[in-house]
């Protein structure tokens, strides 16, 4: 550990954290497949309501997408802006 400067240590941990943050994609992907599957089921049951179901599905998917987008912003900030290095 003696050869590593504290700045390099913080940079490496920031990169690791940026990777870990994106694990939220697992949950979001699971949720989105569930929602899409249910939507396909309901379209198969009631094909005449396809427009309404599709609209609701898109809005719901965008809402679910939000959390992974937040994670992406956090990881972009961690990698590009490096706010933690400035705190040293």
């Amino acid at each position: 550990m003696s050869g590593i400067s504290s700045e390099a240590f913080v940079l490496g941990l920031s990169a690791l954290a940026a990777g870990f943050v994106m694990f939220v994609g697992i949950a979001v992907g699971f949720g989105q497949t569930q929602a899409t599957g249910k939507a396909v089921e309901s379209i198969a049951r009631q094909p005449e309501a396809k427009g309404d179901i599709f609209q609701t599905l898109i809005v719901g998917l965008a809402m679910a997408e939000t959390s992974v987008i937040f994670a992406l912003i956090i990881s972009i900030l961690l990698v590009v802006v490096n706010p933690l290095v400035g705190m040293l």
Binding site: A62, T66, I69, F70, L72, I73, I76
Partner: peptide, 16 residues
């Protein structure tokens, strides 16, 4: 706050 961050995050991620 959530409305603004949702829109900003999606578009900014695309740009980036």
């Amino acid at each position: 706050i959530s409305l603004a961050f949702r829109l900003f995050g999606n578009i900014f991620a695309g740009v980036f």
